[in-house]
Nucleic acid binder design. Structure first.
Length: 375
DNA sequence: CGCAAATCAATCATGGAAGT
DNA sequence: ACTTCCATGATTGATTTGCG
């Protein structure tokens, strides 16, 4: 009778159906061929013949003809798809389609060498991509080729040892108190609950604010639980479409609780009264997607005349204010949802130094050197 | 050998352009 | 006055490297 792995199954109509691998399509999915028979053994025989045919073929010609973009699609759609988040999948797919496939069109995987990768990087340079983007394309390519080495498709990884553009150093932008005041003045008096106010007083990310529900706020214990993140990505299934992804934290570690200050609590409670939606920031009685939050944010920024800032700067602003009020780094790290304090330290070392310096200057006033003479 | 710095990999944010 | 699509760019967790 039918055994696991044979790929022979009994059909509802009484016949036996066997499947064999014919090859793979452009996306890397397996294409099956089918055989049928009234008896199990009959089907098994037919199937083994087919299998013999195709295994000979794939041993001789198929492996030689594997193209670079075939491998990439196989790597992404078969090997990676279920291991990575939809947002990452979408991102990778976009980079393959837009950059890798066109450049390595008609290039055989087995002939790929380091020089090709260097040329590719050069072409990305010329298309004026930032070094960050180039790096992320190459690092994805590197992992795909690493797997190809592992599967004996190529003997060594051509990405090994390529020279990447220098990482552009990031400069954290945050609002000073004057800018913050100006922004709040407008945001606070909006009728709807303001994403900007929440960002400035919790440090939450835009996607997290987008997914925040009233039920995530524990007014009794003054806590906000971050449980969701919303983003819109190019559709995984339908081409030329996008879709909303509501990400659930994979582990309990992904979630975090943020304490609510007194004023924020008052603000939120007031807004909750007039809210009819499950979501704190609502749009048509549902969530407000990040693009819209950003759109509204930009209008407020313009109105408040504080210059050019990104929404993410509000998160930095929150952290900076925390540091200024002398918060300890471990606490801040927890609130921001960082995995370790290392990350937090890396980003905020400078502002920590600023507050230490000004603390020193305060102390310094007490030491009046001239008075020594009169003593 | 232990540690932090550097780099890689995965994920999230941004905003122009065009559509409704 | 948003809303959708899409490619680029930045952030952040994980791993490797390199240095005393």
């Amino acid at each position: 009778m039918s055994k696991r792995g044979e790929n022979i199954y009994k059909r509802k109509d009484g016949r036996w159906e066997g499947r064999y691998r014919k090859g793979r399509n452009k996306e890397g999915r397996i294409i099956y061929g089918y055989v049928y028979g009234k008896q199990y053994n009959e089907t098994k025989e037919k199937l083994s013949k087919k299998n013999a045919d195709y295994s000979i073929r794939s041993e001789t010609s198929a492996p030689e003809e594997m193209m670079v973009d075939e491998w990439l699609n196989y790597w992404l759609n078969i090997l990676m798809k279920n291991r990575i988040k939809p947002s990452t999948y979408s991102n990778y797919r976009g980079r393959i389609q837009r950059h890798l496939s066109p450049f390595f069109k008609n290039k055989q995987l087995s002939t790929l060498e380091t020089a090709d990768i260097d040329k590719f990087i050069y072409s990305l340079y010329r298309s004026e991509l930032s070094s960050n983007s180039i790096r992320s394309i190459i690092s994805m390519l590197r992992s795909a080729l690493k797997k190809a080495v592992n599967d004996n498709k190529i003997s060594k990884n051509p990405c090994q040892g390529v020279l990447l553009p220098a990482l552009s150093k990031r400069e954290i932008k945050s609002l000073d108190k004057r800018q913050q005041k100006k922004l709040e003045q407008i945001a606070l008096y909006k009728k709807e609950c303001s994403a900007e106010v929440i960002a400035l007083y919790t440090g939450m990310r835009i996607g997290e604010i987008s997914g925040l529900k009233w039920e995530d706020i524990d007014f009794k214990n003054n806590k906000i639980f971050v449980k969701r993140t919303i983003s819109r990505i190019p559709s995984v299934t339908e081409p030329h479409k996008t879709e909303i992804i509501i990400g659930k934290p994979k582990s309990i570690n992904g979630e975090r609780a943020i304490p609510i200050s007194k004023n924020l609590k008052r603000y939120l409670m007031e807004k909750k009264q007039s809210s009819t939606s499950l979501y704190v920031i609502s749009c048509k009685n549902s969530f407000t997607e990040p693009r819209i939050i950003n759109y509204r944010f930009k209008k407020i920024v313009e109105e408040s005349k504080i210059g050019q800032v990104h929404f993410h700067a509000l998160r930095h602003t929150f952290a900076t204010r925390c540091v200024e009020s002398g918060i300890d780094i471990a606490t801040l790290s927890k609130i921001l949802g960082h995995a370790s304090t290392k990350m937090t330290l890396d980003i905020y070392t400078d502002s920590l130094w600023e507050t230490r310096r000004s603390a020193m200057m305060l102390i310094d006033r007490q030491l009046n050197y001239d008075e020594r003479i009169t003593l």
